[in-house]
Amino acid sequence: MSPESESDLMETKITPSPSQEKMLSTSAQNVLNCFSLHRKGQRPRSWWQHRLTPDQYADVLRVLDGDESLRGYVEDKIRLDYDPRRSRLTIRNPSPLHEIFCAEVVSKIMNRLTELQKSDEAFGDFARKIQYLSTSNIRLPNDTNDIQQTYSQRCPDASFIHEYAKYPGVIIEVCYSPKIRAAAGLAEDYILDTNASVKAVIALNIEYRGCKKATISVWRPNKMTVDGVKELEAKAVIEMMPFRTESGLPVDDSKQPPLQLSLRDFAPKTISQKYPNLDQDILISSKELCDFLSSAEAAHQKQLLGQGVEEPLSPGTRKRRRAQTPSEELSSEE
């Protein structure tokens, strides 16, 4: 968050109602103030993190329960992660560039899934049961020795889930500094906390300052035996592999496309093992990723400059708006 926003954060203080008499910690108050500033249009940087213990997070939720308007805004407009294991709250605020690029990658995967869905073979039926989720909330159970189960909340940039699965099989995160530093931890949580129900976590890092370099990382579940004990880890099978050079050109990937998925990646083994022949490839080359990113950059720049063709209004034409109904008018509380 910028210095100006940090100052505003201290000045914009939400006062708990009398029913919320319990004194709020500074951390809980700062988070609530950030929510309020967000609603006023003063957004934090793309990846804003704040230390917040589970008890402090519970206090934040308690205050939101007493402020229906702010709670509705937070639930509807703020992309939020909360990790009780690390006592960390994260507000995601991706730019249009990241969202456009992510949409391009998702579109490519969806087009390939649509092709596979047309098949009369068993894998076609499997493919027809795969759903795309856009910025959905995922609750991940934490490993705990306590009696009470705790959960992390995650809001990935994109994910794909099988109709019968509890968790997505494939997750995509579009990264930027400092989010890229959190990517390995995110991938580990997605894979380990779902007992490897998540089969592939893809991180696309598209912001390297001072150059046009872009990279891809992919994590998958890896099961092994160490000293006679079975262990599950999130293994980086591709780590910071460039798909675009510093000068903006696609990397030669004639040996191996950087993004490789198969249908079996989209569901837990208990589901996929019932279907034969799921080794149907979904491939995206470096050139395609590079083209998607260049297209997203051009679209973002056009938005920033206000460019593009619009429908002209005939001279002398007035715009007639309908009158607001009483139900549409805001009350003083709203």
Rank of each mutant, 00 (worst) to 15 (best):
Q56M: 03
R45M: 07
V226Q: 15
T135P: 01
P315D: 01
R39I: 00
M240K: 13
E188Q: 10
V170I: 11
L37T: 00
L313W: 10
L140R: 06
K230N: 14
M241Y: 13
S262A: 11
R139C: 09
S295C: 13
L113F: 02
N277G: 07
R71P: 00
Q260C: 12
S159C: 08
G66A: 05
D227Y: 13
P221Y: 04
Y208Q: 07
S69M: 12
H50G: 09
R320I: 07
Q148V: 08
E115V: 06
L283P: 03
P96H: 12
Q301A: 15
R139M: 08
I138K: 06
G169L: 02
Y208K: 11
Y275T: 09
N137G: 10
Q29N: 02
V60M: 01
E99S: 11
E246I: 05
S19H: 13
A187M: 07
D125A: 15
E310A: 14
T245L: 07
I271P: 03
T215M: 03
C211Y: 05
P141L: 08
H162P: 03
S254K: 11
V105M: 06
F160T: 04
V105N: 08
L330T: 07
I147D: 09
S247C: 11
I282K: 07
T12F: 09
C102E: 11
L9T: 06
A267I: 00
H98A: 07
V237S: 10
G316T: 00
Q153G: 08
R321V: 03
K287S: 14
I147H: 14
L61T: 06
T135N: 12
F126R: 03
L32P: 02
N33P: 02
T12D: 15
N33Q: 09
I109C: 06
L289G: 02
A183L: 13
K13C: 05
L330S: 14
K274D: 15
I130M: 08
Y151R: 08
P141Y: 07
N142T: 10
T135V: 10
P242R: 05
L97H: 05
P315W: 04
D67C: 10
H300I: 01
Q280W: 08
K40A: 02
I161R: 12
I171V: 14
K166V: 03
I161D: 09
P44V: 03
M1R: 12
D265P: 02
C211G: 03
A184E: 15
S95I: 01
R43F: 13
I180K: 12
W48R: 12
L113C: 05
S69P: 01
K199C: 05
Q256E: 10
K212Y: 11
F123P: 00
V31A: 05
T194S: 09
R88C: 14
N142R: 13
S331I: 00
R154H: 06
E239L: 14
G210M: 01
S36H: 09
I206W: 06
W47A: 02
A103I: 02
T90F: 01
L204K: 00
E233C: 09
D8V: 00
